[in-house]
Computed example of a mutant assay.
Amino acid sequence: MTEINRETTIITKVHGFDPHPETDPTVTDMSKIVGACSYDVQHENGDTETLVTGLRPGENFGWSLKVIEAAQVWRNAGGSIPEWTPPTPDELRAAMPTLTARQFRLGLLQSGRSLAQVETAIAAIANPVEQETAQVEWEYATEFSRMHPLVVSLSVTLGFTPEEVDTLWQSSLQL
């Protein structure tokens, strides 16, 4: 986590605001907004970086108050806060934690699919480069993300619905 020296660090630009479900985008007082503010800072040594600070009324202290002041200037200059929209199923899937290869394989077994079925599915890939790529991924990857192309491809070939893979994923995290 970046150490912020409030005395010497300057907020140079506010990029925008990601709302929270509780956000009212019509509120103009940034101290009453819930969400995350993205902004650039310049440190005393001249280094610059982009930071994000979560804001919630009644829980903003220290550095957050400086962010609220900068966000208020941004808001007064026409910055708009979008309405919160719930994430799509694919966005939720992309945010799922990775599984180790062990967890993924055990999850497949517990869902009634065998490792031989996976090998057969990979062998059935028509394109030789894609087939070899899938084989390398299956044999050597140490972890898998929910939206990895091999996971998506195997789930279809092995007869899973996306929701079934989500369930497999969640239960496999405990293995």
Rank of each mutant, 00 (worst) to 15 (best):
T157K: 14
T100G: 04
T133C: 11
T9I: 07
M30C: 15
L175S: 01
L51E: 08
Y39S: 03
V129D: 10
G35I: 11
E69V: 10
F17N: 02
E119W: 05
F17H: 04
Q135T: 14
T26K: 04
T88I: 06
P21E: 07
T167Q: 08
E164K: 07
E44Y: 08
T157R: 15
G58F: 04
R102Y: 13
E91D: 11
T48W: 03
A71S: 12
S80G: 05
W74E: 10
V151G: 03
S172A: 15
Q72V: 01
R102C: 01
H43I: 00
D24Q: 09
E132P: 02
I33R: 01
V73G: 00
R105I: 06
N76G: 04
L109H: 14
T88H: 04
T53V: 02
Y39E: 07
E91K: 06
L106P: 00
T12K: 11
G79C: 02
V152Q: 10
Y140W: 11
V73E: 12
A124F: 02
S80D: 12
M147P: 02
N60R: 04
W169C: 02
V14F: 01
P128C: 14
L150F: 06
V136A: 11
E69G: 10
P128E: 13
E69P: 03
G16I: 03
T9V: 15
S153C: 00
Q135M: 12
A95C: 05
N60L: 02
A123L: 12
N60K: 00
S155D: 02
V118E: 01
A94T: 09
W169G: 07
L115T: 09
Q135A: 15
E7G: 01
V118D: 09
Q103D: 05
R56Y: 12
G54M: 10
E3W: 15
V27C: 07
E3K: 15
L108F: 04
R105A: 11
V152L: 10
E44D: 15
Q72M: 10
A124P: 01
G112R: 06
I11W: 02
T88D: 11
S172N: 08
T98R: 03
M30Q: 04
D29V: 09
F104V: 06
Q103G: 06
E59F: 14
V118Q: 05
Q117F: 05
V151S: 05
Q110I: 06
D90F: 08
S114L: 07
E83F: 01
P82F: 09
V152P: 00
S155K: 03
V136D: 11
P82M: 09
L65W: 06
L109P: 04
D90I: 14
V156I: 10
W169Y: 03
V27Q: 12
T53R: 06
I10E: 14
L55R: 05
Q174A: 14
V136H: 10
H43P: 02
V73I: 14
S80W: 06
L150V: 10
E69H: 12
L55A: 05
G35Q: 05
D18T: 15
I33T: 10
N45V: 10
W169M: 07
E119A: 15
T133S: 13
R93E: 07
P97N: 12
T142L: 12
E143T: 10
D40W: 14
Q72Y: 04
L108I: 08
P97M: 12
I122Q: 02
L150K: 05
L55W: 02
